[in-house]
Design a binder for these strands. Structure first.
Lengths: 185, 185
DNA sequence: CTTGTCTATGCAACTCGTTGCATAGCAGGA
DNA sequence: TCCTGCTATGCAACGAGTTGCATAGACAAG
């Protein structure tokens, strides 16, 4: 499992609490790795007892205290070890594709609204990624000479952008097919 | 969960045994939904006791007997109900992206071989999909007037092809970035 | 004649991930 | 004042998915 490793990377980029990690997993990290707060708290606890992360109690005013986690030496070693291991190309779980093939045994036209909804979601995500890219990498406030970390973050973001563009184009292909079938049927 | 639904779709396309389903999940269906044989046997058993599928013992010579499953009326109803429910756009799990961002805290150049390996895997998959497309949809043996089911299978396959092409181009972008960083570092 | 491979099914144990619920302080609006 | 919402952490139960192992007949290669 790689949730531990995703957490290590996120904490190396910036230490933070379980709650803050959960919010990051709704945003930047969540573009390629999702996790709920319960999962994060549980895994953080295990990582702490394994000595991968250090904890620091941070008192706060106007809000509850928090535990700030940062990566310990053992955690860096564990991450390094994982980085040098080969991994399998990801396995896919695409509900919509199952639905599209299933539509052959039901009413294909009924899927049109659903596909349109997904199209809107992916269009929104693309706009969100592009805004982030302008803000952090290509806009006037972006660093003139990005360091290695920034270049690597940018190439991952470009992957997200390419994925959304591809998905949007494919959903349009799906819509055209569904409309054509409605005309025929 | 949608494994039940993926099984229903596959059985509607063609009835078969758990073993045959497992093989399909390594091929066509597996392009967008993976499952091991243990998972499939367990879910089939539940679907059978829920009356979603019918079983028929098929004696065979030169090999063990098998249980051939086909979709029952209740299964069709369940599938139809699921098709009319909205689903959330998929959540992503992309180990390689985690590794790429993690490489900022290790040696980026060490990732080059790994990325090249993924590039080869996706190139192979693309070739495999394109061969399937020629065989079933665009080649000389393909049906001149494909029915709804074939058109829907084709649009799903086109999605797989677009995904592989996008991924291959992105991996080349990643490789270029890693080589650039090695030159700088 | 033994070893390996393919079809075919399944159990048991485990880890991973989700859902529902609980607590608790503080802030802002009706 | 009460209700809603945000930060912040966590338990308990369940469901999904993986890994290892077991069985068993038939065939092919060495």
């Amino acid at each position: 499992m790689a949730l531990e490793h995703a957490i290590l990377v996120s904490l190396l980029e910036k230490p933070g609490s379980g709650y803050e990690l959960a919010r990051r997993f709704e945003r930047s990290i969540g573009y390629f790795w999702t996790a709920t707060h319960q999962q994060i708290y549980r895994v953080l606890k295990r990582m702490e007892s394994d000595g991968w992360v250090d904890v620091r109690e941070v008192p706060q005013q106007a809000r509850p205290d928090k535990k700030e986690y940062s990566v310990a030496a053992l955690g860096r070693t564990a991450l390094s070890g994982w980085l040098h291991e080969p991994i399998e190309p990801e396995s896919v779980r695409h509900d919509l594709a199952v639905k599209i093939r299933g539509a052959a045994f039901d009413d294909p036209a009924a899927l049109i609204r659903e596909v349109e909804r997904h199209h809107r979601t992916h269009t929104d995500r693309l706009a969100h990624y592009l805004a982030g890219e302008r803000r952090d990498f290509t806009g006037p406030e972006a660093p003139a000479a990005p360091d290695a970390g920034q270049q690597l973050q940018h190439v991952v973001l470009r992957g997200g952008i390419a994925y959304e563009r591809m998905t949007i184009a494919w959903l349009e292909d799906v819509l055209a097919t569904l409309h054509r079938l409605r005309g025929e049927g």
